[in-house]
Design a protein around this nucleic acid. Structure first.
Length: 424
RNA sequence: GGAAAGGUGGCAGAGUGGUUGAAUGCAUCGGUUUUGAAAACCGACGUAGCUUUACGGCUACCGAGGGUUCAAAUCCCUCCCUUUCCGCCA
């Protein structure tokens, strides 16, 4: 979340950023934050003074008892009553003000990077660059939901039987393709200097708060009600939370991690033709890259991460474009996000396969993820992450773009991983 | 799931309800010594909030949250976690 000090110092910029996002009543909200913070400080000052007085008195009473001056001690004791009451009252006020402030801060999204374009819908996203040309397909080319049936590599009906809609079963060469892609992505990331981690696929509430899924976005996650745990919607959550409450040793920076996990999303309210097939699932596989950076390096890191993702797409021979998300489309916690979209020729539409974001200090403020500057002072670090890559839509694009009358051609870089070059 | 013992600073490990934010050791940093290093010796060494131009001062924190008390690391309650033994088991 935003730091109150930042809201104080950069109020105008944050106000403009909130307007760009279409945040309701931005000015009132910021004013309320500042007023609550002022009240918090004033209350704390009063509370601390009362406590200081009361601590002092207690010590005196202790001394009096020790030196056997019982009467004086008891007299002093009588004086503590009022202090106690005041301290209790102020304590309650303090925590209520603090909670209100905290709750309000949770509702305020991250400040946008100046380069974020204006606009409120996906149409307003800015195309930064594009690469490759969509292939010309043969007569009778099909969307992937037909191809997977034809070659019997993914079975939705079977998934419905054992779980429900949106939980496909991968079979045969389909399963092998998935595993090949995962291994390819992990190897590529490792080569690029990311250290592999295998985090839990279930996280607690504190982790949900750390990366910004909680509060408010519970609805997107599957919850284990008895345990108050959540199935991860992305590996971002457990991997970034590895660094919760950590003061990172300077020599450990930058931190670069990669992890492969399944991702679980309820996707409540999603429906229609554009969610058909592999386009949107409740469970899917993803390889995620995460970086923890010094503030001054984070935007350079963001570009590096984009370059890494683009390298993967190029190696897979997929035509893609890079979008800079507009104020209305960008995520709550992000300052700047690039989406990578692959053109799916058979569906004649762009499919988002990666989202690369810089959260600046928005997550680290919640995570208390810091490093030391100079001898004593600590400073919040910047967190970043990106999909590298999400599997289902990549698979869909490969199936659709590489189809031939004889079968589906496996991209060359994957052949060592699949052990076959055609799905037929 | 059952039983027991625990959770204290980066680590190890003391702590009788009262000047205990917490002994001591290790680690780390600075200094003295040394040709250099080691050793030895001296010193520094938690996080956060509030306050102060500054030096500093105050407050909170000994797993988490409550409670008792003038006063809690220390006593009580609830929860979480760890270890060991038993049970079950990939």
């Amino acid at each position: 979340m935003l730091q109150v000090a930042h809201i104080q110092e950069e109020k105008q910029a944050i106000l403009e950023s909130l307007e760009k996002r279409g945040f309701p009543n931005p000015a009132e909200t910021l004013d309320r934050v500042l007023a609550l913070d002022k009240e918090r400080r004033e209350t704390q000052f009063q509370l601390d003074s009362i406590k200081a007085e009361s601590n002092k008195l207690s010590k005196e009473i202790g001394m009096l008892f020790k030196s056997g001056k019982k009467d004086e001690a008891n007299a002093a004791k009588a004086k503590t009553g009022e202090l106690k009451e005041q301290s209790k009252e102020l304590g309650e006020k303090f925590s209520s003000v603090e909670h209100e402030l905290q709750d309000l801060l949770y509702t305020i999204p991250n400040k946008l990077h100046p380069s974020v374009p204006a606009g409120f819908t996906a149409d307003d996203n800015e195309e930064v660059r594009a690469h490759g040309t969509p292939p010309t397909l043969h007569e009778g080319a099909k969307p992937h939901w037909d191809l997977i049936k034809e070659y019997d590599i993914i079975d939705f009906e079977l998934g419905v039987k054992i779980t429900g809609a949106g939980f496909p079963v991968y079979k045969g060469k389909g399963a092998r393709m998935q595993r090949a892609l995962v291994n390819f992505f992990l190897d590529q990331a490792t080569e690029a200097g990311y250290a592999e981690v295998q985090p839990p696929h279930v996280v607690n509430e504190a982790s949900g708060y750390g990366t910004g899924q909680l509060p408010d976005k519970e609805g997107q996650m599957y919850e284990l009600v008895d345990e108050k745990l959540f199935l991860i919607p992305t590996a971002e959550v457990p991997i970034t939370n590895l660094y919760r409450d950590v003061i990172v040793d300077g020599t450990a920076l930058p931190i670069k991690n990669v992890g492969f996990t399944p991702c679980f999303r309820r996707e409540a309210g999603s429906w229609g033709a554009h969610v058909r097939g592999l386009n949107r699932l409740h469970q899917f596989d993803k390889v995620e890259i995460v970086q923890v950076r010094k503030p001054e390096e984070s935007y350079q890191a963001l570009e590096e991460m984009c370059a890494h993702v683009e390298g993967l797409l190029q190696k897979l021979e997929l035509p893609y474009r890079v979008l800079r998300l507009c104020g209305g489309d960008i995520g709550f916690t992000s300052a700047l996000t690039y989406d990578m979209e692959v053109y799916s020729t058979a569906q004649e539409r762009w499919l988002e396969v990666s989202s690369v974001s810089n959260f600046e200090t928005y997550q680290s403020n919640r995570l208390k993820l810091r490093h030391r500057v100079g001898d004593k002072k600590t400073e919040l670090l910047h967190t970043l992450n990106g999909s590298a890559l999400a599997l289902p839509r990549i698979l869909a694009s490969i199936l659709e773009n590489n189809q031939t009358p004889e079968g589906i051609r496996v991209p060359e870089v994957l052949v060592p991983y699949t052990g076959f070059s055609m799905i037929n």
